[in-house]
Design a protein around this nucleic acid. Structure first.
Length: 517
DNA sequence: GGATCCGTTGTAGCT
DNA sequence: AAGCTACAACGGATC
């Protein structure tokens, strides 16, 4: 009997999943077993409830879809990857096993790949194939080893790479279309119990409690529910049915709230967690954007949605071609800056949203409760933590984001922190510092109109007049009294003098740069 | 080879 | 409301 194991790692979906098309093309498998592996203990130690909740919801949704669409059982395991594969291979009653999984640039997954290769090294009847371009549009390995590749630093560089890969840029690149879904996934009519031995079957029990597990990690605010079903429905609502929205999309003028200033729905697509967990194919999203673009005038990279997808590809390329991508040491994309020593008090105030800067605090509290934050909010809080106000190393902020964000993505998260801290060779002049207390008319002005976003996430300031909402400590005593919020008692004073720290940090950044010359 | 331009999204104050 | 200017001024690419 010939068996294929499809290990779904960062591709928790059925649509446009090339692995199943490869299997269909080969055509002689008797039985295909899709599996997910989580390390529950490690997961719960490393990540916050929202990330875990999103992942579990996505796995459960996929399980349901496999069953209803293909009558196939998705098996989910808890344990280390090597432990699960050892058990699976030794337990399966099969003459030939082909293991497939999706390519990923994250070092952890690369070492997992090596462990598996090592494990099956002496087994003649087991093969392991890593399929590239499952969760990216570009084939990362192919592009970075091509002769035209050098580390991209701008959208222009990315346009060049896309042009070399897909042909000339006219209005949009000729990127591959999403694949047609497979008709059938072969499974022999036998229970898992017959296929695998008793010992392994015990492992599957985690499957059964999965549903209960989700409840444990869900809060009253499930900002984005996990899963492919939700991803496709959001794609349809936000993109496919809204060509005008796509064609007018311009990243710098998007906000944390939608047009009704609903604090729980951004004006952006909200598709990021579905991309990062592989619930949504980037090729499908690209295609839907191009379809809208074909209908008329439209924004272009870097500000367009296509541009956003291209930045994602850029970070994936860099995460593979730049050594120590996630480190401030030995990373050619990270300038050396003499940050202060780790300051627990400062970082805790920042993380918990108690800085005394309402905009920063609102963003950080939204992150804590929902596991998501608008991209420009990420700009504001990361600038605040690093070169703007607190002068802390970007990697501490990166860690907080990684732990909490439901759309956390190793390549993208590190790329954005490098960018925003001003240490990467991207266009980010260090003297462009975000004001944590923006007045109307600046890039973050939106959170400002009526300031509903801030009032929602910093309820202490619910009744504060808009005039003082960004710097409530400047409000006269009478106003603080009337608003039922005394600064220093009900809401903190600002943890730093923003003007002084801005000026000092600007000088320190320049000094660090000069010292390297 | 020095000047100039430009880079995904700055801010404040003025008209 | 939108556009201008000053602020302070990086660094690589291009002219």
């Amino acid at each position: 009997m010939k068996i294929a194991i499809v290990w779904l790692r960062n591709n928790l979906r059925i649509h446009d999943n090339p692995i199943f098309n490869i299997i269909e093309e080969i055509g002689d498998f008797d039985h295909v077993i899709p599996i997910c592996i989580v390390n529950k203990e490690k997961l719960e130690k490393t990540y916050t409830h929202n990330r875990i909740r999103f992942l579990y919801q996505s796995i459960l949704d996929l399980k349901t879809t496999f069953k209803s669409k293909y009558n196939v059982n998705l098996l989910s395991f808890s344990g280390s990857v090597i432990e699960i594969f050892s058990l699976l291979i030794s337990s399966l009653k099969s003459d030939s096993i082909e293991i497939y999984c999706d390519y990923c640039t994250r070092p952890e997954t690369i070492s997992e790949n090596l462990e598996i290769k090592d494990l099956i090294h002496d087994m003649n009847d087991v093969n392991f194939t890593i399929v590239d371009a499952v969760n990216t549009i570009l084939n990362i390995e192919e592009v970075i080893s091509s002769d035209y590749y050098s580390n991209p630093k701008s959208m222009k560089d990315m346009q060049h790479i896309f042009e070399k890969t897909f042909g000339k840029y006219l209005d949009f690149f000729n990127v591959p279309k999403p694949l047609t879904p497979v008709i059938n996934i072969p499974q022999i009519n036998m229970s898992v119990k017959n296929l695998l031995d008793e010992k392994l079957f015990e492992f599957l029990m985690s499957d059964i409690i999965l549903k209960g597990e989700i409840k444990k990690f869900s809060t009253t605010v499930d900002y984005f529910p996990g899963g492919e079903t939700e991803a496709l429905s959001r794609l349809r609502q936000k993109i496919t049915e809204n060509p005008d929205y796509v064609n007018n999309f311009s990243k710098p003028s998007t906000y944390s709230t939608n047009e009704n200033q609903n604090p729980l729905e951004p004006s952006t697509t909200g598709l990021s967690p579905y991309l990062s967990n592989g619930c949504l194919s980037p090729r499908l999203l690209w295609q839907e954007c191009v379809n809208a673009n074909k209908k008329g005038e439209h924004t272009k990279p870097p500000v367009s949605l296509i541009g956003q997808l291209m930045f994602r590809e850029m970070f994936y390329l860099l995460s593979r071609s730049v050594d120590n991508w996630d480190s401030d040491i030995g990373n050619s994309n990270c300038k050396y800056i003499e940050w202060d020593e780790y300051n627990e008090e400062k970082i805790t105030l920042w993380e918990e949203g108690k800085t005394g800067f309402p905009l920063i605090d609102a963003m950080m509290r939204q992150l804590e409760v929902t596991g998501w934050m608008h991209h420009l909010g990420r700009h504001a809080v990361s600038c605040f933590l690093t070169r703007g106000q607190l002068w802390q190393n970007w990697k501490y902020g990166r860690e907080v984001f990684d732990r909490k964000l439901i759309d956390s993505d190793w390549a993208v998260n590190n790329g954005n922190w490098l960018w925003l801290a001003g240490v990467a060779p991207f266009s980010m002049p260090y003297y462009r510092i975000y004001n944590p207390c923006p007045s109307a008319g600046t890039s973050l002005n939106v959170e400002t109109k009526e300031a509903k976003f801030i009032r929602h996430w910093v309820p202490e300031l619910r009744n504060f007049p808009s005039k003082y909402i960004f710097e409530p400590h400047l409000a006269p005593e009478q106003i603080q009294n009337d608003s039922g919020c005394i600064i220093g008692k009900d809401y903190p004073f600002p943890m730093v003098d923003r003007k002084i720290s801005r000026k000092e940090n600007l000088a320190k950044f320049k000094e660090s740069l000069n010292r390297q010359k």
